[in-house]
Write a protein that binds this DNA or RNA. Structure first.
Lengths: 142, 142
DNA sequence: TATTAATATTTGTATATACAAACAAACTAA
DNA sequence: TTAGTTTGTTTGTATATACAAATATTAATA
């Protein structure tokens, strides 16, 4: 059935979650070739771009909670894609050589994903929607 | 940090998921007084409105997978809010008296939630966004 | 300096959701 | 009628995420 025919199609809880689930699915498909979920991949790209980045910064960038970030990092550590060092209360996350070597492929996945949804939704349409959604996010309480 | 300042703020994966998380949080707050999560509440309202509704219909209405619907129903059954009967391969879900008595309060929660986000986002703005998001959902692959 | 408060991170635990497989029933076609 | 296929639902299992509490460290203040 079409979303627009659901009893709840006017409800932002319903629509935003349904959209997120579909996007997540589409994204994970794009990153499957590197055997990562989208959120792991985004985190990893942040780490490669800014070696030594701290979990708290990642929290801000990804709008996820600290505990979730810890869990994501743990997973990437298991996969030997990042390492962690702790000095006092601060932690730094670094990409491994394996991760650095993976970067071009990660970027291809990212492009593939952008391609995938902008083919479906249209390039301007997607950009406009992303902008509007950001505005909503920033208005909603933390 | 503002979503619009994230490195990934132009990515629909990032924005749609971030919005959904915030909406979910806001919604769950509204339904807390009846001790239900938003998805349980929406399912329950469907069942009250259409007693005997089948899981497959609920799947269509909520755009969730069959297994998720089974799990949500199980939870509501534990809480003595719905009952299930099975005839052949079909299952019917009925509200209990307890659930029916809860209906007005459920509707208040729903109103409270609508109020909450349309106060923040604006009534027209929200309606327009919901419409646009529905369009996106329907374009994306199942 | 000693005590308190704030900050950064991790852990324990709970939750919603999904996928794949299992199962049961109903339909179809030979 | 029987074999095969489709449909509806449930189970087993895995995952991402969050909340609350624990821990450790630094900063502030009295």
């Amino acid at each position: 059935m079409k979303a627009a025919n659901s009893k709840y199609c006017q409800c932002m809880y319903f629509t935003s979650n349904a959209l997120a689930r579909k996007m997540e699915k589409l994204a994970n498909k794009s990153w499957k070739r590197v055997d990562l979920t989208a959120s792991h991949a985004y985190l990893l790209m942040l780490v490669i771009e800014e070696p030594g980045i701290q979990p708290s910064t990642i929290v801000e960038q990804l709008l996820l909670t600290p505990s979730t970030i810890t869990r994501l990092i743990e997973k990437l550590e298991e996969k030997k894609l990042v390492t962690r060092t702790t000095e006092g209360k601060l932690t730094n996350v670094y990409p491994t050589p394996k991760a650095k070597k993976l970067l071009p492929e990660l970027q291809e996945c990212l492009n593939h994903f952008y391609q995938a949804y902008s083919t479906i939704l249209g390039k301007e349409e997607s950009a406009r929607m992303a902008g509007n959604i950001n505005k909503l996010i920033d208005k909603l309480p933390v």
